[in-house]
Design a protein around this nucleic acid. Sequence first.
RNA 1: GGUGCUAUCGUCUAGUGGCCUAGGACAACGGCCUCUCACGCCGUAAACCCGGGUUCGAUUCCCGGUAGCACUACCA
Length: 508
Amino acid sequence: MKQVRVRFAPSPTGALHIGGVRTALYNYLFARQHGGTMLLRIEDTDSTRFVEGAEEYITEALAWLGIEIDEGICMDAPNGKGDHGPYRQSERREIYHQYVQQLLDSGHAYIAFDTPEELEAKRNSVANFQYDARTRGEMINSLTLSKEEVEQRLANGDKYVVRFLVQPNEDIHVQDLIRGEVVINSNIIDDKVLYKSADDLPTYHMANIVDDHLMEISHVIRGEEWLPSAPLHVLLYRALGWEDTMPQFAHLPLLLKPDGNGKLSKRDGDRLGFPVFPLEFHNKKDGSVSSGYRESGYYPEAVINFLALLGWHATGDQEMYTMQELIEQFSLERVSKSGAKFDYEKGKWFNHQYLQLKSNDELAEQFMPYLEAKGVSADTTVVAKVIGLTKDRVNFVSELWEQVNFFFVAPTEYDEKSLKKRWKEDSPKHMTEMLALLEAQEDWSAEGLDNLIMPWIAEKEYGVGVVMNAFRICLVGAARGPHIWNITDVLGKEETLARVRTALEKLG
RNA sequence: GGUGCUAUCGUCUAGUGGCCUAGGACAACGGCCUCUCACGCCGUAAACCCGGGUUCGAUUCCCGGUAGCACUACCA
Protein backbone atom coordinates (compact mmCIF):
# COMPACT_ATOMS: atom_id res chain seq x y z
CA MET A 1 0.00 0.00 0.00
CA LYS A 2 1.24 3.43 -0.83
CA GLN A 3 1.96 6.00 1.85
CA VAL A 4 -1.29 6.65 3.69
CA ARG A 5 -2.47 10.22 3.43
CA VAL A 6 -6.02 11.03 4.42
CA ARG A 7 -7.85 14.30 4.69
CA PHE A 8 -10.69 15.80 6.58
CA ALA A 9 -12.20 18.47 4.37
CA PRO A 10 -14.99 20.44 6.02
CA SER A 11 -16.70 23.55 4.75
CA PRO A 12 -16.58 26.61 6.97
CA THR A 13 -20.35 27.04 6.93
CA GLY A 14 -20.97 26.90 10.66
CA ALA A 15 -20.20 24.73 13.64
CA LEU A 16 -18.69 21.34 12.91
CA HIS A 17 -21.45 18.77 13.12
CA ILE A 18 -20.87 15.77 15.37
CA GLY A 19 -21.14 13.51 12.32
CA GLY A 20 -18.29 15.46 10.79
CA VAL A 21 -16.33 14.97 13.98
CA ARG A 22 -16.75 11.23 13.66
CA THR A 23 -15.59 11.37 10.04
CA ALA A 24 -12.51 13.30 11.18
CA LEU A 25 -11.94 10.76 13.96
CA TYR A 26 -12.09 7.76 11.63
CA ASN A 27 -9.71 9.47 9.23
CA TYR A 28 -7.37 10.20 12.09
CA LEU A 29 -7.48 6.66 13.48
CA PHE A 30 -6.82 5.25 10.04
CA ALA A 31 -3.91 7.62 9.44
CA ARG A 32 -2.28 6.93 12.79
CA GLN A 33 -2.69 3.20 12.50
CA HIS A 34 -0.86 3.18 9.20
CA GLY A 35 1.75 5.70 10.19
CA GLY A 36 0.23 8.04 7.64
CA THR A 37 -0.61 11.70 7.43
CA MET A 38 -3.80 13.40 8.60
CA LEU A 39 -4.53 16.48 6.58
CA LEU A 40 -7.08 19.23 7.07
CA ARG A 41 -8.28 21.13 4.05
CA ILE A 42 -10.87 23.87 4.08
CA GLU A 43 -13.44 23.56 1.31
CA ASP A 44 -14.66 27.11 1.01
CA THR A 45 -15.68 27.16 -2.63
CA ASP A 46 -19.14 28.44 -1.81
CA SER A 47 -18.53 32.05 -0.92
CA THR A 48 -22.21 32.61 -0.16
CA ARG A 49 -22.27 30.08 2.66
CA PHE A 50 -19.09 31.19 4.36
CA VAL A 51 -19.50 31.82 8.08
CA GLU A 52 -16.97 33.87 9.97
CA GLY A 53 -15.21 31.98 12.72
CA ALA A 54 -16.21 28.57 11.42
CA GLU A 55 -12.70 27.64 10.39
CA GLU A 56 -11.22 28.55 13.76
CA TYR A 57 -14.03 26.62 15.36
CA ILE A 58 -13.14 23.50 13.40
CA THR A 59 -9.47 23.56 14.31
CA GLU A 60 -10.22 24.33 17.94
CA ALA A 61 -12.75 21.50 18.15
CA LEU A 62 -10.34 18.96 16.69
CA ALA A 63 -7.58 20.14 19.00
CA TRP A 64 -9.88 19.81 22.01
CA LEU A 65 -10.76 16.26 21.00
CA GLY A 66 -7.15 15.27 20.49
CA ILE A 67 -7.50 14.72 16.77
CA GLU A 68 -4.11 15.92 15.65
CA ILE A 69 -3.57 17.46 12.25
CA ASP A 70 -0.23 16.72 10.59
CA GLU A 71 -0.67 18.83 7.52
CA GLY A 72 -2.86 21.69 6.38
CA ILE A 73 -4.89 24.06 8.49
CA CYS A 74 -4.70 23.58 12.25
CA MET A 75 -4.55 25.52 15.46
CA ASP A 76 -0.81 25.97 15.55
CA ALA A 77 -0.71 26.76 11.84
CA PRO A 78 -3.85 28.74 10.94
CA ASN A 79 -2.61 29.22 7.42
CA GLY A 80 -1.55 25.66 6.92
CA LYS A 81 1.61 23.67 7.20
CA GLY A 82 3.09 21.21 4.76
CA ASP A 83 4.28 21.38 1.18
CA HIS A 84 1.02 20.67 -0.64
CA GLY A 85 -0.62 24.02 0.13
CA PRO A 86 -2.37 26.29 0.09
CA TYR A 87 -4.91 24.29 2.08
CA ARG A 88 -7.84 26.61 1.63
CA GLN A 89 -9.58 26.10 -1.67
CA SER A 90 -10.36 29.78 -2.06
CA GLU A 91 -6.59 30.29 -2.26
CA ARG A 92 -6.13 27.74 -5.03
CA ARG A 93 -7.95 29.47 -7.86
CA GLU A 94 -4.99 29.45 -10.26
CA ILE A 95 -4.53 25.74 -9.76
CA TYR A 96 -8.14 24.96 -10.60
CA HIS A 97 -8.07 27.23 -13.68
CA GLN A 98 -5.36 25.07 -15.14
CA TYR A 99 -7.28 21.83 -14.78
CA VAL A 100 -10.59 23.28 -15.86
CA GLN A 101 -8.81 24.43 -19.00
CA GLN A 102 -7.32 20.99 -19.45
CA LEU A 103 -10.77 19.41 -19.40
CA LEU A 104 -12.05 22.03 -21.82
CA ASP A 105 -9.16 21.43 -24.19
CA SER A 106 -9.52 17.67 -24.09
CA GLY A 107 -13.24 17.86 -24.76
CA HIS A 108 -14.22 16.48 -21.37
CA ALA A 109 -15.95 19.70 -20.45
CA TYR A 110 -17.78 22.55 -22.11
CA ILE A 111 -18.98 26.05 -21.41
CA ALA A 112 -22.65 26.68 -20.62
CA PHE A 113 -24.41 30.04 -20.52
CA ASP A 114 -27.80 29.00 -19.21
CA THR A 115 -28.72 31.26 -16.34
CA PRO A 116 -29.90 29.86 -13.02
CA GLU A 117 -33.33 31.27 -13.85
CA GLU A 118 -33.46 29.52 -17.18
CA LEU A 119 -32.48 26.25 -15.60
CA GLU A 120 -35.06 26.71 -12.90
CA ALA A 121 -37.71 27.33 -15.54
CA LYS A 122 -36.63 24.23 -17.39
CA ARG A 123 -36.88 22.10 -14.28
CA ASN A 124 -40.35 23.40 -13.65
CA SER A 125 -41.58 22.75 -17.14
CA VAL A 126 -39.86 19.47 -17.89
CA ALA A 127 -40.41 16.62 -15.47
CA ASN A 128 -37.21 15.10 -14.12
CA PHE A 129 -35.11 17.48 -16.16
CA GLN A 130 -31.43 16.65 -16.10
CA TYR A 131 -28.63 18.48 -17.91
CA ASP A 132 -27.06 15.55 -19.75
CA ALA A 133 -26.44 13.86 -23.09
CA ARG A 134 -30.16 13.87 -23.87
CA THR A 135 -30.75 17.52 -23.12
CA ARG A 136 -27.51 19.41 -23.56
CA GLY A 137 -28.23 19.82 -27.28
CA GLU A 138 -31.19 22.01 -26.43
CA MET A 139 -29.35 24.23 -24.04
CA ILE A 140 -27.19 27.31 -24.46
CA ASN A 141 -23.61 26.10 -24.44
CA SER A 142 -20.43 25.78 -26.43
CA LEU A 143 -21.76 22.58 -27.95
CA THR A 144 -24.79 24.27 -29.48
CA LEU A 145 -23.45 27.75 -30.10
CA SER A 146 -21.00 28.64 -32.82
CA LYS A 147 -17.45 29.27 -31.88
CA GLU A 148 -17.85 32.97 -32.68
CA GLU A 149 -20.94 33.25 -30.54
CA VAL A 150 -19.16 31.67 -27.60
CA GLU A 151 -16.21 34.04 -28.06
CA GLN A 152 -18.58 36.97 -28.24
CA ARG A 153 -20.41 36.04 -25.04
CA LEU A 154 -17.14 35.49 -23.25
CA ALA A 155 -15.87 38.84 -24.47
CA ASN A 156 -19.08 40.47 -23.24
CA GLY A 157 -18.37 39.10 -19.83
CA ASP A 158 -21.50 36.92 -19.81
CA LYS A 159 -21.65 34.72 -16.75
CA TYR A 160 -21.02 31.08 -17.53
CA VAL A 161 -20.22 27.76 -15.99
CA VAL A 162 -18.05 24.91 -17.14
CA ARG A 163 -19.85 21.59 -17.22
CA PHE A 164 -18.42 18.11 -17.24
CA LEU A 165 -19.37 16.16 -20.35
CA VAL A 166 -20.66 12.82 -19.18
CA GLN A 167 -20.74 10.06 -21.79
CA PRO A 168 -24.07 8.25 -21.75
CA ASN A 169 -24.85 4.66 -20.95
CA GLU A 170 -21.64 3.54 -19.39
CA ASP A 171 -21.42 1.42 -16.25
CA ILE A 172 -19.10 2.99 -13.75
CA HIS A 173 -17.58 0.75 -11.10
CA VAL A 174 -16.59 2.17 -7.76
CA GLN A 175 -14.68 0.11 -5.24
CA ASP A 176 -15.66 1.01 -1.71
CA LEU A 177 -13.66 -0.30 1.23
CA ILE A 178 -16.79 -0.59 3.35
CA ARG A 179 -19.46 -1.48 0.81
CA GLY A 180 -17.61 -3.37 -1.85
CA GLU A 181 -18.26 -2.70 -5.50
CA VAL A 182 -20.94 -0.19 -6.44
CA VAL A 183 -22.03 0.07 -10.06
CA ILE A 184 -23.88 3.03 -11.47
CA ASN A 185 -24.85 3.84 -15.02
CA SER A 186 -23.64 7.17 -16.29
CA ASN A 187 -27.10 7.98 -17.63
CA ILE A 188 -28.20 9.05 -14.20
CA ILE A 189 -25.32 11.46 -13.77
CA ASP A 190 -25.90 14.95 -15.04
CA ASP A 191 -23.30 17.22 -16.61
CA LYS A 192 -22.11 18.58 -13.31
CA VAL A 193 -21.00 22.16 -13.00
CA LEU A 194 -17.25 22.16 -12.43
CA TYR A 195 -16.58 25.85 -12.36
CA LYS A 196 -18.61 29.02 -12.08
CA SER A 197 -17.36 32.29 -13.53
CA ALA A 198 -19.58 34.30 -11.19
CA ASP A 199 -17.19 33.86 -8.29
CA ASP A 200 -14.28 32.40 -10.23
CA LEU A 201 -14.34 29.26 -8.14
CA PRO A 202 -14.75 25.58 -8.90
CA THR A 203 -17.56 23.57 -7.34
CA TYR A 204 -16.94 20.90 -4.77
CA HIS A 205 -16.47 18.06 -7.23
CA MET A 206 -13.76 19.71 -9.26
CA ALA A 207 -11.85 21.20 -6.36
CA ASN A 208 -12.09 17.96 -4.44
CA ILE A 209 -10.63 15.80 -7.17
CA VAL A 210 -7.88 18.23 -8.07
CA ASP A 211 -6.88 18.70 -4.45
CA ASP A 212 -7.01 15.05 -3.51
CA HIS A 213 -4.79 14.31 -6.47
CA LEU A 214 -2.33 17.12 -5.89
CA MET A 215 -2.21 16.46 -2.16
CA GLU A 216 -1.57 12.80 -2.89
CA ILE A 217 -4.49 11.54 -0.85
CA SER A 218 -4.46 7.75 -0.64
CA HIS A 219 -7.84 7.14 0.99
CA VAL A 220 -10.99 9.20 0.85
CA ILE A 221 -12.97 8.46 4.01
CA ARG A 222 -16.17 10.47 4.04
CA GLY A 223 -19.88 10.35 4.79
CA GLU A 224 -22.32 8.15 2.92
CA GLU A 225 -24.02 11.19 1.44
CA TRP A 226 -21.11 11.26 -1.01
CA LEU A 227 -21.61 7.75 -2.29
CA PRO A 228 -23.93 8.80 -5.13
CA SER A 229 -21.33 11.20 -6.48
CA ALA A 230 -18.43 8.78 -6.21
CA PRO A 231 -18.95 7.53 -9.80
CA LEU A 232 -18.75 11.11 -11.01
CA HIS A 233 -15.49 11.47 -9.16
CA VAL A 234 -14.15 8.34 -10.81
CA LEU A 235 -15.08 9.82 -14.18
CA LEU A 236 -13.26 13.02 -13.29
CA TYR A 237 -10.09 11.20 -12.28
CA ARG A 238 -10.29 9.36 -15.57
CA ALA A 239 -10.84 12.51 -17.62
CA LEU A 240 -7.92 14.19 -15.92
CA GLY A 241 -5.73 11.18 -16.61
CA TRP A 242 -5.26 10.33 -12.95
CA GLU A 243 -7.16 7.09 -12.67
CA ASP A 244 -4.06 5.05 -11.88
CA THR A 245 -3.35 7.08 -8.76
CA MET A 246 -6.96 7.54 -7.74
CA PRO A 247 -7.48 7.26 -3.96
CA GLN A 248 -9.45 4.39 -2.46
CA PHE A 249 -12.92 5.22 -1.20
CA ALA A 250 -14.66 4.44 2.06
CA HIS A 251 -18.13 5.80 2.64
CA LEU A 252 -19.15 5.96 6.28
CA PRO A 253 -22.70 5.27 7.51
CA LEU A 254 -24.70 8.29 8.63
CA LEU A 255 -25.50 9.41 12.15
CA LEU A 256 -29.27 9.31 12.52
CA LYS A 257 -31.81 11.04 14.75
CA PRO A 258 -32.32 9.37 18.16
CA ASP A 259 -36.03 9.15 17.50
CA GLY A 260 -37.80 8.74 14.20
CA ASN A 261 -35.81 8.64 11.01
CA GLY A 262 -33.37 10.73 9.08
CA LYS A 263 -30.02 12.39 9.46
CA LEU A 264 -29.12 13.88 12.80
CA SER A 265 -29.51 17.63 12.62
CA LYS A 266 -28.96 20.66 14.79
CA ARG A 267 -32.70 20.88 15.29
CA ASP A 268 -32.77 17.42 16.88
CA GLY A 269 -30.31 18.56 19.49
CA ASP A 270 -32.39 21.61 20.33
CA ARG A 271 -35.57 19.57 20.37
CA LEU A 272 -34.26 16.70 22.50
CA GLY A 273 -31.90 18.75 24.61
CA PHE A 274 -28.41 17.59 23.79
CA PRO A 275 -25.49 19.10 21.89
CA VAL A 276 -24.88 18.24 18.25
CA PHE A 277 -21.60 20.13 18.16
CA PRO A 278 -18.30 19.58 19.93
CA LEU A 279 -17.95 23.18 21.10
CA GLU A 280 -20.42 25.94 21.74
CA PHE A 281 -20.75 28.11 18.67
CA HIS A 282 -21.93 31.66 18.27
CA ASN A 283 -22.90 32.10 14.66
CA LYS A 284 -22.19 35.67 13.67
CA LYS A 285 -24.09 35.27 10.45
CA ASP A 286 -27.49 34.40 11.87
CA GLY A 287 -26.93 35.18 15.52
CA SER A 288 -27.73 31.65 16.64
CA VAL A 289 -25.98 29.93 19.52
CA SER A 290 -25.40 26.19 19.46
CA SER A 291 -24.53 24.25 22.56
CA GLY A 292 -21.40 22.14 22.62
CA TYR A 293 -20.16 19.02 24.31
CA ARG A 294 -17.26 20.81 25.92
CA GLU A 295 -19.47 23.44 27.53
CA SER A 296 -21.97 20.77 28.57
CA GLY A 297 -19.28 19.24 30.71
CA TYR A 298 -18.15 16.36 28.53
CA TYR A 299 -14.62 15.11 28.57
CA PRO A 300 -13.07 14.85 25.12
CA GLU A 301 -12.08 11.24 25.72
CA ALA A 302 -15.73 10.39 26.47
CA VAL A 303 -16.90 12.04 23.26
CA ILE A 304 -14.22 10.22 21.29
CA ASN A 305 -15.06 6.86 22.84
CA PHE A 306 -18.77 7.36 22.30
CA LEU A 307 -18.37 8.49 18.71
CA ALA A 308 -15.90 5.77 17.83
CA LEU A 309 -18.44 3.10 18.74
CA LEU A 310 -21.21 4.72 16.71
CA GLY A 311 -20.59 2.90 13.48
CA TRP A 312 -17.55 0.86 14.35
CA HIS A 313 -17.01 -2.06 16.70
CA ALA A 314 -14.20 -4.50 17.34
CA THR A 315 -14.82 -8.23 17.67
CA GLY A 316 -15.07 -8.41 21.45
CA ASP A 317 -17.20 -6.81 24.14
CA GLN A 318 -14.88 -3.97 25.04
CA GLU A 319 -16.67 -0.66 25.57
CA MET A 320 -14.00 1.62 26.97
CA TYR A 321 -11.25 2.60 24.56
CA THR A 322 -8.44 5.06 24.87
CA MET A 323 -7.44 6.90 21.72
CA GLN A 324 -4.36 4.71 21.56
CA GLU A 325 -6.45 1.54 21.70
CA LEU A 326 -8.71 2.88 19.00
CA ILE A 327 -5.73 3.59 16.81
CA GLU A 328 -4.49 0.06 17.30
CA GLN A 329 -7.80 -1.69 16.78
CA PHE A 330 -9.65 0.44 14.25
CA SER A 331 -10.32 -0.94 10.82
CA LEU A 332 -12.48 0.20 7.95
CA GLU A 333 -13.56 -3.41 7.37
CA ARG A 334 -15.33 -3.35 10.72
CA VAL A 335 -17.23 -0.13 10.10
CA SER A 336 -20.98 -0.78 9.92
CA LYS A 337 -22.78 -0.34 6.66
CA SER A 338 -26.00 0.93 8.18
CA GLY A 339 -26.67 4.24 9.84
CA ALA A 340 -26.45 4.60 13.61
CA LYS A 341 -29.10 6.31 15.67
CA PHE A 342 -27.56 8.79 18.02
CA ASP A 343 -28.08 7.50 21.57
CA TYR A 344 -27.43 10.43 23.83
CA GLU A 345 -27.97 8.40 27.01
CA LYS A 346 -25.01 6.25 26.19
CA GLY A 347 -22.93 9.35 25.71
CA LYS A 348 -23.74 10.36 29.27
CA TRP A 349 -22.75 6.92 30.51
CA PHE A 350 -19.38 7.26 28.84
CA ASN A 351 -18.84 10.58 30.53
CA HIS A 352 -19.77 9.01 33.86
CA GLN A 353 -17.14 6.35 33.31
CA TYR A 354 -14.43 8.84 32.45
CA LEU A 355 -15.37 11.10 35.34
CA GLN A 356 -14.86 8.20 37.77
CA LEU A 357 -11.36 7.81 36.37
CA LYS A 358 -10.40 11.37 37.33
CA SER A 359 -8.66 12.02 40.63
CA ASN A 360 -10.55 13.88 43.35
CA ASP A 361 -8.05 16.71 43.17
CA GLU A 362 -8.54 17.11 39.46
CA LEU A 363 -12.31 17.10 39.85
CA ALA A 364 -12.06 19.58 42.70
CA GLU A 365 -10.13 21.92 40.49
CA GLN A 366 -12.80 21.63 37.80
CA PHE A 367 -15.53 22.12 40.36
CA MET A 368 -14.15 25.23 42.08
CA PRO A 369 -15.69 27.66 39.57
CA TYR A 370 -19.12 26.16 40.23
CA LEU A 371 -18.64 26.67 43.97
CA GLU A 372 -17.58 30.24 43.44
CA ALA A 373 -20.67 30.83 41.35
CA LYS A 374 -22.71 29.68 44.33
CA GLY A 375 -20.85 32.09 46.55
CA VAL A 376 -19.10 29.33 48.45
CA SER A 377 -15.45 29.58 49.32
CA ALA A 378 -13.95 26.34 50.47
CA ASP A 379 -10.61 24.70 50.83
CA THR A 380 -9.76 22.53 47.83
CA THR A 381 -8.75 19.62 50.06
CA VAL A 382 -12.21 19.68 51.60
CA VAL A 383 -13.78 19.96 48.16
CA ALA A 384 -11.73 17.03 46.93
CA LYS A 385 -12.83 15.06 49.95
CA VAL A 386 -16.56 15.60 49.44
CA ILE A 387 -16.19 14.93 45.73
CA GLY A 388 -14.58 11.63 46.60
CA LEU A 389 -17.71 10.80 48.56
CA THR A 390 -20.16 11.76 45.83
CA LYS A 391 -18.62 11.52 42.40
CA ASP A 392 -19.94 8.06 41.67
CA ARG A 393 -23.44 9.48 41.47
CA VAL A 394 -22.88 12.09 38.77
CA ASN A 395 -22.25 12.13 35.05
CA PHE A 396 -20.87 15.66 34.94
CA VAL A 397 -18.90 17.98 37.16
CA SER A 398 -21.81 20.41 36.89
CA GLU A 399 -24.04 17.89 38.66
CA LEU A 400 -21.75 17.82 41.68
CA TRP A 401 -23.28 20.86 43.36
CA GLU A 402 -26.57 19.08 43.78
CA GLN A 403 -24.73 16.27 45.57
CA VAL A 404 -22.43 18.29 47.79
CA ASN A 405 -24.28 21.55 48.53
CA PHE A 406 -25.23 20.54 52.08
CA PHE A 407 -21.59 20.15 52.98
CA PHE A 408 -21.14 23.87 52.47
CA VAL A 409 -24.55 25.36 53.13
CA ALA A 410 -26.79 24.37 56.04
CA PRO A 411 -30.29 23.33 54.98
CA THR A 412 -32.84 26.08 55.29
CA GLU A 413 -35.77 23.92 54.40
CA TYR A 414 -36.47 20.24 54.56
CA ASP A 415 -37.54 17.94 51.77
CA GLU A 416 -41.24 17.25 52.02
CA LYS A 417 -41.09 13.63 50.95
CA SER A 418 -38.17 12.79 53.21
CA LEU A 419 -39.92 14.31 56.21
CA LYS A 420 -43.06 12.36 55.60
CA LYS A 421 -41.18 9.12 55.39
CA ARG A 422 -38.31 9.63 57.83
CA TRP A 423 -39.24 12.29 60.42
CA LYS A 424 -41.30 10.35 62.96
CA GLU A 425 -43.33 11.42 65.92
CA ASP A 426 -40.46 10.46 68.23
CA SER A 427 -37.78 12.10 66.12
CA PRO A 428 -37.63 15.38 68.12
CA LYS A 429 -37.17 13.35 71.29
CA HIS A 430 -34.48 11.20 69.67
CA MET A 431 -32.65 14.21 68.33
CA THR A 432 -32.77 16.03 71.63
CA GLU A 433 -31.24 13.06 73.39
CA MET A 434 -28.69 12.58 70.67
CA LEU A 435 -27.78 16.25 70.76
CA ALA A 436 -26.89 15.94 74.44
CA LEU A 437 -24.80 12.88 73.72
CA LEU A 438 -22.95 14.62 70.88
CA GLU A 439 -22.34 17.78 72.88
CA ALA A 440 -20.46 15.75 75.44
CA GLN A 441 -18.53 13.78 72.83
CA GLU A 442 -14.79 14.37 72.55
CA ASP A 443 -13.80 11.87 69.90
CA TRP A 444 -15.41 13.15 66.69
CA SER A 445 -14.01 10.44 64.42
CA ALA A 446 -16.37 8.18 62.53
CA GLU A 447 -15.39 5.32 64.78
CA GLY A 448 -15.79 7.35 67.91
CA LEU A 449 -19.26 8.53 66.94
CA ASP A 450 -20.30 5.08 65.85
CA ASN A 451 -19.20 3.65 69.20
CA LEU A 452 -21.19 6.34 70.96
CA ILE A 453 -24.44 6.32 69.01
CA MET A 454 -24.98 2.69 68.06
CA PRO A 455 -24.91 1.28 71.57
CA TRP A 456 -27.23 4.07 72.70
CA ILE A 457 -29.73 3.26 69.97
CA ALA A 458 -29.51 -0.42 70.79
CA GLU A 459 -29.98 0.18 74.50
CA LYS A 460 -33.01 2.40 74.01
CA GLU A 461 -34.34 0.16 71.23
CA TYR A 462 -35.10 3.16 69.05
CA GLY A 463 -34.12 1.49 65.81
CA VAL A 464 -31.03 2.46 63.80
CA GLY A 465 -32.98 3.50 60.74
CA VAL A 466 -35.37 5.72 62.62
CA VAL A 467 -32.67 7.65 64.46
CA MET A 468 -30.12 7.86 61.70
CA ASN A 469 -32.58 9.02 59.08
CA ALA A 470 -33.88 11.76 61.34
CA PHE A 471 -30.29 12.76 62.05
CA ARG A 472 -29.61 12.78 58.31
CA ILE A 473 -32.55 15.08 57.70
CA CYS A 474 -31.15 17.49 60.27
CA LEU A 475 -27.78 17.61 58.55
CA VAL A 476 -28.71 17.28 54.89
CA GLY A 477 -32.28 18.48 54.72
CA ALA A 478 -33.33 15.33 52.91
CA ALA A 479 -32.95 11.57 52.93
CA ARG A 480 -29.97 11.35 50.67
CA GLY A 481 -26.22 11.65 50.62
CA PRO A 482 -23.15 9.60 51.61
CA HIS A 483 -22.64 7.69 54.83
CA ILE A 484 -23.65 9.78 57.82
CA TRP A 485 -20.29 9.68 59.61
CA ASN A 486 -18.63 10.96 56.45
CA ILE A 487 -20.94 13.92 56.66
CA THR A 488 -20.30 14.64 60.35
CA ASP A 489 -16.62 14.31 59.64
CA VAL A 490 -16.64 17.07 57.05
CA LEU A 491 -19.10 19.26 58.95
CA GLY A 492 -17.24 19.07 62.25
CA LYS A 493 -18.73 19.10 65.71
CA GLU A 494 -19.92 22.70 65.93
CA GLU A 495 -21.69 22.74 62.58
CA THR A 496 -23.26 19.36 63.20
CA LEU A 497 -24.67 20.43 66.53
CA ALA A 498 -25.89 23.72 65.10
CA ARG A 499 -27.78 21.92 62.36
CA VAL A 500 -29.47 19.58 64.81
CA ARG A 501 -30.54 22.53 66.95
CA THR A 502 -31.90 24.36 63.96
CA ALA A 503 -33.85 21.31 62.85
CA LEU A 504 -35.25 20.85 66.30
CA GLU A 505 -36.45 24.44 66.24
CA LYS A 506 -37.98 24.29 62.81
CA LEU A 507 -39.41 20.79 62.89
CA GLY A 508 -40.38 20.72 66.54
C1' G B 1 -40.49 9.90 -9.64
C1' G B 2 -35.32 8.08 -10.68
C1' U B 3 -30.64 5.95 -8.83
C1' G B 4 -27.90 3.95 -5.01
C1' C B 5 -27.06 2.18 -0.06
C1' U B 6 -28.91 -0.47 4.12
C1' A B 7 -31.85 -4.10 7.19
C1' U B 8 -30.04 -8.71 14.61
C1' C B 9 -33.27 -6.70 21.37
C1' G B 10 -36.23 0.36 22.23
C1' U B 11 -30.74 2.02 21.03
C1' C B 12 -25.26 0.88 19.78
C1' U B 13 -23.73 -3.74 18.34
C1' A B 14 -21.23 -9.34 18.45
C1' G B 15 -22.20 -13.06 15.03
C1' U B 16 -19.20 -14.37 8.47
C1' G B 17 -23.55 -22.09 7.29
C1' G B 18 -23.86 -26.23 12.35
C1' C B 19 -20.21 -23.51 18.46
C1' C B 20 -27.03 -19.59 18.70
C1' U B 21 -31.14 -22.23 24.01
C1' A B 22 -28.58 -15.57 19.26
C1' G B 23 -23.60 -12.75 23.24
C1' G B 24 -22.17 -7.71 25.33
C1' A B 25 -23.28 -2.47 26.44
C1' C B 26 -26.91 1.78 27.19
C1' A B 27 -31.86 2.47 28.66
C1' A B 28 -36.09 -0.19 31.38
C1' C B 29 -37.63 -3.42 35.32
C1' G B 30 -36.68 -6.58 39.82
C1' G B 31 -33.45 -8.14 43.80
C1' C B 32 -29.07 -7.79 46.95
C1' C B 33 -26.05 -4.32 49.73
C1' U B 34 -27.75 -0.43 53.34
C1' C B 35 -29.17 4.74 58.31
C1' U B 36 -30.99 7.54 53.10
C1' C B 37 -30.09 8.53 47.96
C1' A B 38 -26.76 6.83 44.66
C1' C B 39 -22.73 3.57 43.09
C1' G B 40 -21.75 -1.47 42.75
C1' C B 41 -23.24 -6.54 42.25
C1' C B 42 -26.91 -10.21 40.69
C1' G B 43 -31.03 -11.11 37.78
C1' U B 44 -35.62 -10.31 34.37
C1' A B 45 -37.84 -8.74 29.99
C1' A B 46 -36.28 -7.63 25.04
C1' A B 47 -34.16 -8.93 18.35
C1' C B 48 -32.39 -12.21 13.47
C1' C B 49 -38.12 -7.32 8.27
C1' C B 50 -41.23 -10.74 4.99
C1' G B 51 -41.40 -14.54 1.08
C1' G B 52 -38.94 -17.82 -1.95
C1' G B 53 -34.67 -20.58 -3.13
C1' U B 54 -29.34 -23.09 -2.36
C1' U B 55 -28.01 -26.73 1.45
C1' C B 56 -28.38 -32.47 5.41
C1' G B 57 -28.65 -27.59 7.95
C1' A B 58 -29.62 -20.86 7.36
C1' U B 59 -29.34 -14.82 11.36
C1' U B 60 -25.27 -15.99 8.16
C1' C B 61 -25.26 -17.37 0.80
C1' C B 62 -28.69 -16.04 -3.69
C1' C B 63 -33.29 -13.83 -5.66
C1' G B 64 -37.75 -11.05 -4.96
C1' G B 65 -40.67 -7.97 -1.94
C1' U B 66 -41.12 -4.45 1.90
C1' A B 67 -39.22 -0.63 4.79
C1' G B 68 -35.66 3.11 6.12
C1' C B 69 -32.04 6.36 4.52
C1' A B 70 -29.01 9.13 1.07
C1' C B 71 -28.49 11.54 -3.48
C1' U B 72 -31.02 13.73 -7.47
C1' A B 73 -28.21 22.58 -7.13
C1' C B 74 -23.93 27.51 -10.53
C1' C B 75 -24.23 23.54 -1.57
C1' A B 76 -20.80 20.86 0.33
